[in-house]
Design a protein around this nucleic acid. Structure first.
Length: 591
DNA sequence: GGGCAT
DNA sequence: CGTA
DNA sequence: GCCC
């Protein structure tokens, strides 16, 4: 996997080749004392297209210039960017906002600091279409540029609004996970995937960092056999209810997966120094190296209880607790499990909990508002029991993996249907598919619409439509968009989701398909939040928390004042938390 | 000895 | 509690 | 079970 892009732009020192950058701006005064060239101004740096070393240099320059860092483009007087294309630029800054700022190339900052004063912007405008407004807002206050030399289309700054291709599906071979359902309607740049992949700075992704969101973790690693072994212990810990222990095994697995060397007698010491590998795990690694196995694993493997709990928990809707209850009342095999739910003698033991979860199983509500779960109408008192009976009937289908091309064709079917109901939606296939798995357990798709007003309620309407057409047979809805509810203090669940059972047209195999509808301002958080892996998400949230922030798939907020943040690209989320970019295929921190 | 995602 |  |  060649993750290192043959990067060609070093935007900083000599931005682009063909610009009239006045005066050679050499390797100047790294050591010069601070001055006040830009005192009183606020500068915002768009990090896209910049090397991280350049980014830090530019930050230094801002400080040295006496300017302040703006926290957002809106907040700034000056926006520094290496982006020259309007469409790409708009992914970071609203066009209207941009017109009220000076939008310049990095060279302007360098040269202004070098010369100790704010230089005229005219030769530094980052985008041709913004040259005029940039001059009007130039900190130097003495830009002389007249009305844009409107016809000299040879300008290197020119940003053709119409890019090369009539961008309909030119992205497909790069990341077919990302698709738009509409080619006709105009989609704002910030909802589109990057036209070139972000650079992956491998040197920053050190394997011995604490959190998996700071490391590159491939789908399968060089020590996969060890990871698979430890995964058995982890599963076992989860099933018996030792969640914290399970968490530790999960973290250990994650860090081993990112360790790029085969663990041998040579490298074992290094491996034992890894974060999340402590005394116990070190001993296990020793055993594994010396004897080729770990006794505890063999014990677990052969345990009747583990096998029973494992198989029960494979049923959708049965988790560790229910599995343990079943075992406790004497159920041992799948066959017995079916018999147990067949016989209408369900004991109270399983009934009691789980009454008013916020998620509504949407079956019986045949009268309009919900999708019908046909088999489940006329049901007995216990919805949980009913639910599991149905899930039992799915188990063979849902155990089947879904090939990538089938994931894509399911996406195509769904997008085609959605386009009929609501043209112009944008979508990304997320989940394991996006992380590069060749076989997927389910299909997860995040949707939005450039007109945010089109999104509330769309999930329900659309799923009902799919149900009427026979494509969706069952659904669990989670509420979303209760934003209109004035009683709600956080009216910020700008996300609707439906967990469905889907049968592709002309087929009979049921598939689990999750549809997520996000307001446009939380589209990228939803995409990051639903791409996974699970450990990657946990660590991302831990990192956010350490920084006083809160991350979840429906938004990012500052804990102290609940201020919301709306990143305009996936990478902006990484930037926001000071994390190096990690592409989806290297977020596979689960075994 | 508390925290471990939301 | 189960699920993502 | 590991980290701070």
């Amino acid at each position: 996997m060649s993750t290192k892009r043959p990067t060609n732009q070093r935007a900083s020192s000599s931005s682009t080749t063909a610009s009239p950058s006045p005066g050679p701006t050499s390797k100047r005064q790294r050591l010069s004392a601070p001055h006040n060239a830009l005192h009183g101004h606020k500068v915002y740096i768009i990090t896209a297209k910049l090397e991280s070393s350049t980014i830090s240099e530019l930050h230094e320059l801002v400080e040295r210039s006496g300017a302040a860092h703006a926290r957002s483009p809106e907040d700034a007087d000056v926006i520094v960017t290496a982006i020259g294309m309007r469409k790409r630029f708009e992914r970071h800054v609203d066009w209207k906002v941009a017109k009220s700022k000076a939008v310049v190339r990095p060279a302007w900052l360098e040269d202004s600091v070098a010369q100790g004063k704010a230089l005229p912007c005219e030769d530094y405008a980052a985008l041709r279409d913004l040259k005029e407004t940039t001059c009007a807002n130039c900190p130097s206050g003495r830009c002389t540029c007249g009305p844009t030399d409107s016809d000299s289309d040879t300008s290197p700054l020119n940003t053709p609004t119409k890019a090369k291709k009539p961008r309909s599906f030119d992205h497909s071979q790069r990341e077919s996970a990302v698709a738009r359902t509409s080619a006709r309607t105009e989609i704002p740049g910030y909802l589109l995937p990057p036209e070139t992949p972000y650079a992956v700075e491998m040197e920053k992704l050190r394997f011995n960092t604490r959190f998996s969101c700071q490391r590159a973790t491939p789908l399968r690693c060089i020590n996969q056999d060890l990871c698979d072994t430890l995964e058995i212990i982890r599963r076992s810990r989860l099933l018996v209810g030792e969640d914290r222990s399970a968490l530790s095994y999960g973290r250990a697995i994650a860090v081993i997966k990112s360790f790029p060397k085969r663990i041998t007698g040579e490298t074992r010491d290094e491996a034992k120094e890894l974060p999340n590998i402590g005394v116990k795990l070190s001993k296990m690694i020793n055993l594994w190296l010396d004897t080729g196995q770990i006794p505890e694993i063999e014990k677990i493997r052969h345990s009747e209880r583990f096998q029973a709990l494992s198989s029960f928990a494979e049923i959708y809707g049965i988790g560790p607790t229910t599995a343990r209850h079943l075992y406790a009342v004497g159920v041992r095999t799948m066959t017995e499990l079916e018999a147990y739910y067949e016989a209408d003698t369900a004991p109270e033991s399983l009934v009691h909990l789980q009454e008013d979860s916020q998620d509504a199983v949407d079956p019986s509500a045949e009268p309009d508002p919900g999708v019908s779960m046909t088999e489940a109408d006329h049901m007995g008192s216990n919805p949980q029991e009913t639910w599991i009976k149905i899930a039992l009937s799915w188990r063979h289908d849902l155990a089947k993996k879904i090939a990538r091309n089938e994931v894509e064709s399911i996406r195509d079917v769904i997008c085609a249907e959605l386009e009929k109901m609501q043209p112009g939606c944008v979508s990304t296939i997320v989940g394991g598919y996006r992380r590069g798995k060749t076989e997927c357990g389910d299909v997860d798709i995040v949707f939005t619409h450039p007109d945010g007003g089109r999104v509330p309620g769309l999930c329900r309407r659309f799923v009902r439509d799919l149900h009427n057409k026979g494509l969706v047979t069952h659904v669990i809805h989670s509420m979303g968009f209760h934003s209109h509810d004035p009683l709600r203090t956080h009216h910020w669940d700008s996300l609707e989701k439906a967990l469905t059972v889907f049968v592709p047209p002309g087929q009979t195999t049921r598939r689990r398909v999750d549809l997520i509808f996000a307001a446009p301002e939380v589209y990228w958080t939803a995409v990051v939040g639903w791409t996974g892996s699970m450990m990657f998400e946990r660590d991302l949230r831990s990192v956010a928390k350490l920084q006083g922030m809160k991350f979840d798939s429906s938004g990012i907020s500052r804990r102290r004042d609940s201020k919301l943040f709306h990143p305009r690209s996936e990478k902006e989320i990484f930037d926001m938390f000071g994390l190096a970019w990690i592409p989806p295929e290297l977020r596979n921190a689960d075994a």
